[in-house]
């Protein structure tokens, strides 16, 4: 498979909402290529007819009745908010208008 370029790394960083300095991009490009080179060994295996496995221990969907239960206290939850206002999380304006 083709190696990862600086441009790919910048694109992935944007998807992941991360920003890097120029030398960090070099380093991450190098590290990412190293790890991908290593994991490419999976290509040795023919998995054409193998089912993918997401959860190692099979469990049927865990469903429950939709009953009203006590939930967390609003004030306690908001205690960890970086910025809040009148019982809400406060963020900069998102919709211009």
């Amino acid at each position: 498979m083709m190696g990862v370029s600086r441009k790919d790394v910048q694109y992935v960083a944007e998807l992941a909402r991360l920003e890097f300095k120029s030398e960090e991009i070099d380093r991450f490009t190098h590290d990412l290529n190293n790890v991908l080179d290593y994991v490419n060994k999976l290509d040795e295996l023919d998995t054409e007819n193998i089912e993918p496995l997401a959860n190692p221990v099979h469990i049927e969907n865990a469903l429950r009745e939709d009953e009203l239960e006590e939930s967390l206290d609003r004030e306690e939850v908001l205690m960890n908010a970086p910025d809040k206002l009148h019982g809400y999380f406060k963020v900069p304006r998102i919709i211009e208008g």
Partner: peptide
């Protein structure tokens, strides 16, 4: 950050089958 980058890469469009789905299949094996 390194793990987030690797994870985002293997889940991104065009690579999902080659990496993530492949790994889940080998997980079965």
């Amino acid at each position: 950050k390194r793990r987030i980058m690797l994870g985002t890469y293997v889940l991104s469009a065009g690579y999902y089958d080659a990496y993530y789905k492949k790994a889940m299949k080998v997980r079965s094996l």
